[in-house]
């Protein structure tokens, strides 16, 4: 275990340079460059705000826009880490066939790639909140140190998901498709477009409190929007969820790492 981690660290130049390459190739051909990944969440937010402001007249779109964008970016980070995690071992097959490095490296490449997009979306979000908050323009920015530990937890959580989905896809070829369906369904069952209270009112309390995504919403979205630090028990919950996912991923690695090469 410790040996594995030190190997991952020893070969950091390898996977870090591949992350850099992924970014470079993705943005090389567009004039807007990295701006493209800004555009997606911004457009989504605008569309939803327009929709909701005409549907529900009482909705204040100035507070709704950051709310939606925050939920959407966290959701997207989790979703894209899991789904691009599906292809991670196939994409890196040539390296796996050449060098017996710890397999945990390849999901790391995937997650760090999606992390960049999440960071960009987060930047837009901070700007949006700062502009829309009338009282204290720096409130969201001041919250960065508060949400930082939660962000670290979220990254570990996404890495774990991407490990699990990666192994799953190697052994069952339809996993990616099923996961896409799963995420599609849960997009509507997760309080991204509506408030958590809605689920509780509809007797779906388990979805409102049990889902790991909601925990990360409460740990990251809430402080940014309200300016209040999350209670310690909530953070403990986040730690527990992250550790459970991480232990799951490590168990999968331990169980299947030596079998993977025969199934590629």
């Amino acid at each position: 275990m410790i040996g594995q981690i030190s190997l991952v660290w020893k070969f950091r130049y390898f996977w870090l340079s591949l992350v850099k390459l992924d970014l470079k190739t993705r943005y090389r051909r567009s004039i807007l460059g990295i701006g493209w990944s800004l555009l997606n969440p911004i457009l989504m937010t605008i569309v939803f705000c327009l929709l909701f402001s005409t549907w529900q007249q009482n909705k204040d779109w100035k507070s709704f826009a950051p709310f939606f964008l925050a939920g959407l970016s966290i959701w997207e980070f989790i979703r894209s880490s899991t789904l691009s995690g599906c292809q991670t071992f196939f994409r890196n097959e040539a390296y796996i066939r050449q060098c017996p490095l710890p397999l945990a490296i390849y999901p790391l490449r995937t997650v760090l790639g999606t992390l960049i997009h999440f960071m960009i979306a987060l930047g837009v979000l901070l700007l949006l909140i700062s502009v829309f908050t009338e009282a204290d323009h720096w409130r969201a920015v001041k919250m960065i140190p508060v949400i930082f530990p939660s962000l670290v937890l979220l990254i570990i959580f996404c890495w774990a998901l991407s490990v699990i989905s990666g192994f799953l896809t190697v052994f069952f070829q339809d996993s990616q498709h099923l996961l896409e369906v799963f995420f599609q369904i849960f997009f509507f069952l997760t309080p991204i477009m509506y408030d958590n209270q809605l689920l509780v009112d509809r007797h779906l309390k388990l979805l409102a409190t049990g889902s790991p995504v909601v925990i990360f919403f409460d740990l990251i979205r809430e402080p940014l929007l309200s300016g209040n630090a999350p209670p310690l028990w909530l953070f403990t919950k986040g730690v527990i969820v992250t550790f459970a996912a991480m232990l799951g991923a490590l168990a999968v690695i331990r169980w299947l790492e030596k079998k993977l090469i025969f199934h590629l």
């Binding site: 340079s17 591949l18 390459l21 060098c99």
Partner: peptide
């Protein structure tokens, strides 16, 4: 998609 120079680096880091 990477240049020859970059590929030298990746492969060397892999080694």
């Amino acid at each position: 998609d990477a240049s020859g120079w970059d590929n030298i680096r990746y492969r060397a880091y892999l080694q």
